[in-house]
Amino acid sequence: MNKWRHKGYYWLLVLSLILLALISLTIGKYELPFRDVIRLVRSALFSQLPEDDISAFVLFSIRLPRIIMAILIGSGLAVAGVGMQAVFKNPLVSPRVLGVSAGASFGVSLGILLFNDPILIQLLAFGGGMVAVLLTYLLGQSNRSNTVIMLVLAGIIVSAVFTSLLSLLQYNVDVDTELPSIIYWLMGSLSGIKMDDVKMASFPIILAILLLFLLRWKLNLLTLSDEEAESLGLNVKLERGLVIIAATVISAISVSMCGTIGWVGLITPHLGRMLVGTNHQRLVPVAIIIGGIYLLLIDNIARLLTSAEIPLSILTALIGAPVFALLLKKTGGNWR
């Protein structure tokens, strides 16, 4: 009976995501009713698209990549949050706990300062995030004490260093041009996303999501104490390493594509737990869908609310926090 209820939630969520994606194609400042969307999709699939068609350009080069990216990043951050919460055996952890955001943000600023070329900025952001987590991992290696606490402490240290390096850069850049572009980048937006970005980001993100999806049952064991998990035959170091790598790749790419988007990785796992409980076998697929819905919804609001777009990181928390608070009050923190 329970099983059917969970299946029901699952298909309901998938359906909502598809519906939301379709609706998202039609909304925006450029008028593009649903009829035209269907016509354009049909002609794109079965015949040649008319050249210089503004509606086709808006649909396929502006809206579609943006929607795909929102779903990819939202789903990725959600499942990264689930994975990290399992690894750290703590539901308060978000994917940034190991310093990936701080490292990637520093990379963004460095890129803007040195090259000001979008692709190089993205690469530096990704590299910065990976380097930060690698440092955290090396620093947190200890064979004598609780590795999880060591990792958290190492993450705090590395984050602090990269955050102050970021401030140092911001203090020294040109106040009129470079500083605003650093700040706006870090506040997060999907507005400039092109199909090329999607092509570049989708492969590693999908791979990382797939890895966590395949490991979903093993995540249950990771939440036990290390010794318990090991006594049950789990290779804790390997599994933990894989989850951390997957979560880091997702987070680093998300900063490199659309700035630091907080809250998705923290809140969506909890929303998932309210629906299907703590069992990661069910939680992972549900979190993937909820993450996609959540970020796509937020991005739509960012597009529509005012004539100038509101940065994503503001909205994810400004909308997410009250909603989360309400749910928390209603359920009393008892997930299920």
Binding site: N90, P91, N220, T223, L224, S225, E227, T278, N279
Partner: peptide
């Protein structure tokens, strides 16, 4: 192996 009794951070 049966570890010492304690509460679980995630309730299954």
């Amino acid at each position: 192996y049966v570890p010492q009794l304690k509460s679980f951070p995630f309730s299954y």
